[in-house]
Design a protein around this nucleic acid. Structure first.
Length: 854
RNA sequence: GCCCCUGUGGCGGAAUUGGUAGACGCGACAGACUCAAAAUCUGUUUCUCGCAAGGGAGUGCCUGUUCGAGUCAGGCCAGGGGCACCA
């Protein structure tokens, strides 16, 4: 029995597509465009299974839309700046550029093995000066438009490595390399004014119907619009006021303290005269900058000795604390605490023995017996102990409180967003240099157009701590473009999220001299289908949305949203293995035993099998895509990726699963090639009459084409795969015995080959040619189902008695309800279940079900 | 701590979106072919009572809505993801 040789055949067709230039595209106003984009990869070294899944899904969409007649743009590039390149430089002494470009070469070759329908002419890498010079232009355009500004913000500072650390590099308050205690340090940095778009970024989500609801919800929560009030408390013995933000102005009568963020200006002022306050602030600063670390830490405070006057209760005042759970970045960096109706405030009040006054009475509660114990009451209710607010519901009380604050000049109703401006300065080498020169006299001055790009110097070293750009002997020396005096370059580079915030636009005109060619972006944008991991649901996608609006504001694009459709795929998981000593083992080191256990291949030692987790190098539960492609071919790998698990969900990679996919690849090949002799010749017209078996087969084929196409449209690839299995099963039992049968067999095989085209493009191309076609399947239109053959003639209805299935009846499609009822009641099993009683009610749902109620 | 998601046979999952639970695949078992193995083909496979015909239970747990709930509502339990300098 001959076998399908994936390796040779895949290479053959990849060359054929390349020679024919199938996937190179140009703007064509005559044709409807479709832009398919998968999130571009970070060139970390080799492709991993997550990439294989991502690009397989994207390629199915791209090839399908192409067959549907769209002018499809499907490009690929590299998110090539980032921290790992610098880590490699430090660990192995390789220059980040060398490391990155080597990785790109490796990964490009690997991706090409997958047979993706990509227009490689448009390839870009964000670390290439041709890309980042355009990004510098955009930065300067944003600066001119007032969308960029400078302010101080806190960072994790590693005092030993002399560097800023990402939150993930801070482990238990210590630097991951140096193990030194991390400090919070203030740096003057560049910010993008994303908050100028808070409202539109939020409201536009309502119209983004082709985005998953969960991503829209996450973004809504992230932007975090809340209505509330700012309240100005008079500080006793001072002329200035303390301004706080609250979402619960209705609970003001229950306030028992105010609290400041550790880095609030007033905290600093107190600390200047109070060493104990200073020590407390320093302790807070050791907490790290992540919200998680701050929220999970034990609530602690320091009494500043200051007191503020209660705006509604003359003569009463509240203590002011510095507290470790108040964030300077949100609201005004200060709060008032109402322990009765906020859990954090309650924990704090109990700790520092502050009063707890209930001011909201839950519905149907006796005020006499109502007390706050260990749990704050955050629900709706009626105001009590609240002076002029007494008796009002929460919403009404909020309005009344705000009204009084405004009348008295003690505050005002405000809308607050959780969203903060985007700090983009990074004290790192491997990123896009910020094109600004700092002049002692003129301040920050944009680098003039004729001096762009501000290129990264190549002669840098990573053997000493700190930012290589900062300590480079000459790079930062510059002349002020405004006054001509000596000045210094900004030695920071941009957050790599900036690079990925506009690459989709650059793909439209990747070699343009300007950031983008307006005609090209106007034709291609927005991206019709964006595909990537859900881990980017907030940051990357929100930044790209902001960036697009900013680009529109500086008149670079016409669209306001970058991604019309979004699909978030799940992760690829694998079982984890450990030896007796608890060390992680690679899957190839482990042999599964028949009894379900496992042992080590080399030593025969015990292996404990852990749960399936997202593939990661640290847990060694990885399978190398190149090995898989080498063994089984790209089509099998692609097919398995699409089988079984719905694409939005996590999937488990198993050896048995790939082998199953590989067997099916071989089976399809045999099914088509072994039936060549039984088929009608190509081009034979459909006979007027078909035998019963042939007609049934033909119906199955057209139903499959119809359902399969619908599944592709809806990203239900696993079901589409199942339908091809069903069709193959049906074909295996079909032996034509007349011209009609032979016609149906050819039609069935051709249809099946065309359906699998987007999923297993090489096999499909090979079989297509085997069927006698000269054209490339990649250029063929999508097959159409004959709707007359898709509709069923007979339907089977379930018959229930009191909701329990007792029988089924078969009758013509759309038969009248009376007929269904009559047939159902005549069923012996139904009669038995009715036990001689009369039917009280019979519910008939056409073509679905009959339910007899007795 | 806050926010989000998921839960169906031995396993991955399907279920026309409130209407026949378990499609399809994997695994397992039995059989055919073979000197034998591999490959391939055929059949069985939710659990349970029964020789059978046939019955009972069943979609993480509890309560509810409905003629009818895997699907809707409320409350729990378990697992996973994100939290602004990883990309």
């Amino acid at each position: 029995m001959s076998r399908y040789n994936a390796k040779d055949i895949e290479e053959k067709w990849q060359k054929a597509w390349e020679q024919a230039g199938c996937f190179a595209v140009q703007e064509d106003p005559e044709r409807e465009k479709y832009y398919v984009l998968e999130m571009f990869p970070y060139p970390s070294g080799k492709i991993h299974m997550g990439h294989v899944r991502n690009y397989t899904i994207g390629d199915v969409v791209a090839r399908y839309k192409r067959a549907r007649g769209f002018n499809v743009l499907h490009p690929m590039g590299w998110d090539a700046f980032g921290l790992p390149a610098e880590n490699a430089a430090m660990d192995r002494g390789i220059h980040p550029a060398r490391w990155t470009y080597d990785n790109i070469a490796t990964m490009r070759a690997q991706l090409k093995l997958m047979g993706l329908s990509i227009d490689w002419d448009r390839e870009i890498a964000t670390c290439h000066p041709g890309y980042y010079v355009q990004q510098q232009r955009l930065f300067l355009a944003f600066m001119k438009a007032g969308l960029v500004y400078r302010k101080e913000s806190s960072v994790n500072w590693d005092p030993v490595d002399q560097t800023v650390l990402a939150n993930e590099q801070v482990i238990d308050g210590r630097g991951w390399r140096s193990n030194a205690l991390i400090e919070r340090r203030k740096l003057s940095q560049w910010f993008f004014k994303i908050t100028a778009f808070s409202d539109v970024l939020l409201s536009a989500l309502d119209e983004m119907e082709r985005w998953p609801e969960k991503v829209r919800l996450m973004q809504r929560n992230w932007i975090g619009r809340s209505e509330g009030a700012t309240i100005h408390f008079e500080i006793e013995g001072r002329s200035d006021r303390l301004t706080v933000f609250t979402t619960r102005p209705d609970t003001l009568f229950g306030a028992s303290f105010c609290a400041l963020a550790a880095n609030h200006p007033l905290s600093a002022e107190v600390a200047a005269k109070d060493p104990a306050a200073q020590a407390f602030i320093e302790a807070c600063n050791r907490l790290g900058t992540s919200e998680e670390a701050i929220e999970k830490a034990e609530k602690q405070g320091y009494d500043t000795g200051l007191r503020v006057r209660h705006p509604f209760l003359p003569g009463q005042s509240l203590p002011v604390y510095i507290a470790n759970f108040v964030l300077m970045e949100y609201g005004t960096g200060a709060i008032f605490g109402c322990p009765g109706h906020d859990q954090r405030d309650l924990d704090f009040a109990r700790k520092y023995a502050l009063p707890v006054v209930p001011v909201v009475l839950p519905p149907d509660t006796d005020p006499a017996g109502f007390e706050i114990g260990t749990e704050a009451y955050v629900g709706d209710g009626t105001a009590i102990n609240s002076g002029f607010l007494d008796g009002l519901g929460v919403e009404a009380a909020k309005r009344a409180a705000v009204e009084r604050l405004e009348t008295d000049g003690n505050g005002e109703g405000t809308v607050q967003f959780r969203l903060r401006d985007w700090g983009i300065s990074r004290q790192r080498y491997w990123g896009c240099p910020i094109p600004v020169i700092h002049c002692p006299d003129c301040g920050p001055v944009p680098v003039p157009e004729d001096q762009l790009p501000v290129a990264l110097p190549e002669d840098v070293s990573f053997d000493t701590p700190g930012n290589p750009l900062l300590r480079h002997p000459t790079w930062k020396q510059a002349v002020c473009p405004a006054c001509g005096g000596p000045a210094e370059r900004d030695t920071d580079t941009m957050d790599t999220f900036v690079d990925s915030s506009w690459y989709f636009a650059r793909f439209c005109s990747p070699r343009a001299e300007a950031p983008m060619d307006r005609q090209a972006v106007d034709y291609w944008l927005p991206v019709d289908q964006y595909i990537g991991g859900v881990e980017h649901a907030i940051l990357h996608l929100l930044y790209a949305r902001f960036f697009t609006r900013a680009l529109a504001e500086v008149d670079q694009v016409s669209v306001s949203e970058p991604f019309a459709g979004l699909f978030t795929q799940g992760m690829v998981c694998h079982e984890t293995y450990r030896d007796a000593a608890g060390k992680w083992l690679f899957p190839e080191q482990v042999e599964k035993l028949a009894d379900g256990g496992a042992r080590q291949v080399e030593t025969g030692g015990a292996v404990s099998v852990g749960r399936s987790e997202s593939m990661s190098k640290s847990k060694r539960n990885v399978v190398d895509p190149e090995t898989i492609i080498d063994t089984y071919g790209a089509d099998t790998a692609r097919w398995f990726m699409l089988s079984d698990s719905p694409p939005e969900r996590d999937m488990e990679w198993t050896d048995a699963g790939v082998e199953g996919a590989w067997r099916f690849t071989q089976r399809l090949w045999r099914l088509v090639t072994e039936n060549h002799g039984q088929m009608a010749p190509g081009g034979t017209p459909a006979p007027a009459n078909l035998g019963a078996a042939a007609l049934e087969m033909r119906r199955t084929v057209h139903k499959t084409v119809h359902a399969f196409s619908d599944d592709l449209e809806k990203f239900r690839f696993n079901r589409a795969v199942a339908r091809v299995h069903e069709l193959a099963n049906a074909l295996a039992g079909f032996a034509p015995d007349d011209d009609g049968g032979r016609f149906v067999l050819r039609e069935a095989l051709e249809m099946m080959v065309r359906l699998i085209g987007p999923m297993m493009p090489h096999l499909a191309e090979e079989l297509w040619h085997g069927l006698g076609h000269e054209s490339l399947l990649a250029d063929e239109p999508w097959p159409a189902a004959d709707m007359a053959l898709v509709a069923d003639e007979q339907v089977t209805l379930a018959v229930q008695v009191n909701g329990k299935k007792r029988a089924t009846v078969s009758l013509p499609m759309d038969a009248p309800e009376g007929q269904a009822q009559e047939l159902a009641l005549a069923e012996p099993a139904v009669q038995r279940a009715m036990d001689g009683k009369a039917a009280r009610k019979v519910i008939v749902v056409k073509n679905r079900i009959v339910n007899v109620v007795v």
